[in-house]
Design a protein around this nucleic acid. Structure first.
Lengths: 211, 211
DNA sequence: GGGTTATAATGACTATACTCAGTATTGAGC
DNA sequence: GCTCAATACTGAGTATAGTCATTATAACCC
């Protein structure tokens, strides 16, 4: 066999093996989590399906939760792109926000058990590495929300005096609360998405002061 | 030995034994969680200190997390009472809210690791029994927040058109988000309590509309 | 107080996430 | 192509949350 079939400046065999293994892990975890559920899937099963030893699995992921993050990251990215690229034209900020957050809800709705574990992992990450990742993800999302807020200001829909960053944080907080309320089973999906979310955001925009 | 030393209509020996055991469990868990931490304490240790078998422990508590809820319930109750009974006179609603939520933050600040596990357990409870308990607790809290809102309306500080229930939910959502942000290590304690919380609540009251 | 039933307690056992001392593979210098 | 250091992989082993068939105890009835 030739010593090198790949083009120059490509990563060596080691690196390629690692990439392949990571991909196999991703696929195995996706397959099992979706067919059996997160709790019901053991890490050994994932390792077996990925054709690696258990110990190897934990060289690639810190723990079982990170396996979930690994799987969801890509899908969440796509959800964000779709959400922001399908915002209806000439809509109010409220409608835009309901559309955006609603896209996430629809995504999570595809598999509530996994969503629950994933959101929990994101919101309560203590390990520095994962925490940083979660923070970055929220950051990028907030940036795009901020754009919509600025545009709404330009339309004269929102006041110019408001702190955009704070407004983003508040919107995200209201979304998070709606999400956890639903995922923990306290409120139904339909009620959350069709009613509570909108009213919550609306009240933030309106404020509470007398007319 | 006499057959009955207790007054009539009192619970029998069985019931008293159960109460004593529960109390011993509570004390054992409190002692160990505070001296060693939640993660570092094993359920066997709790059982041993409470002088019962492991199996018995799980007759009283569904899982390790419920052990934490058992301990915190009383303290949280006290925190709520203190928070509401020490509201400063003639303050604005914003100051009242900062005082109330701040009381909780100060309480949780005494032991962030336990607080983290506890809040996580509360917000992500799937077991119906515990979920119901969490919902009830939030409900009672919201009722008392609602009172303050109505009084603020009476003072003319807030509009009469607002939905009080929705306003409560939004305040609670903003508080929860601030709390999880701190507990997951994304934001520091001082910054959260002294700055972010107030600005978040303030923006909800003010709203985002143009002047 | 003896017999019977219902309830409570027990601890050996199971299931499973994660570790780590030992082994194998890769790549670089000669 | 050989040697060796660095890196990657392995799977038996460990720790621990939670279970369940068995045993003990309390309550009740005659």
């Amino acid at each position: 066999m030739q010593t090198s079939e790949v083009s120059p400046f490509q990563p060596g065999l080691r690196e390629r093996n690692k990439q392949q293994k990571l991909e196999r892990i991703r696929q195995a975890a996706w397959e099992l989590f979706h067919s059996k559920g997160f709790e019901a899937t053991t890490t050994r099963e994932v390792a077996e399906l990925a054709q690696i030893a258990v110990g190897t699995l934990f060289l690639y992921v810190k723990d079982k939760q990170e396996l979930l993050v690994l799987i969801y990251d890509e899908a969440i990215e796509k959800t964000m792109e779709t959400a922001f690229s399908t915002i209806p034209e000439n809509a109010t900020l409220l409608d835009e926000l309901v559309h955006i957050f609603g896209s996430y809800f629809r995504f999570y709705h595809q598999n509530p058990e996994l969503a629950r574990a994933y959101v929990q992992a994101l919101l309560f990450q203590s390990k520095p590495g994962q925490r940083q990742q979660a923070a970055t993800q929220i950051e990028r999302f907030s940036k795009r929300i901020a754009e919509r807020i600025v545009q709404a200001q330009a339309r004269g829909e929102l006041g110019l005096q408001i702190e955009v960053g704070q407004a983003c944080r508040n919107f995200f907080a209201l979304y998070s609360a709606a999400l956890t309320g639903w995922l923990s089973g306290m409120v139904g999906y339909e009620e959350t998405v069709n009613s509570l979310l909108r009213r919550s955001l609306e009240l933030q925009i309106q404020g509470l002061l007398p007319d």
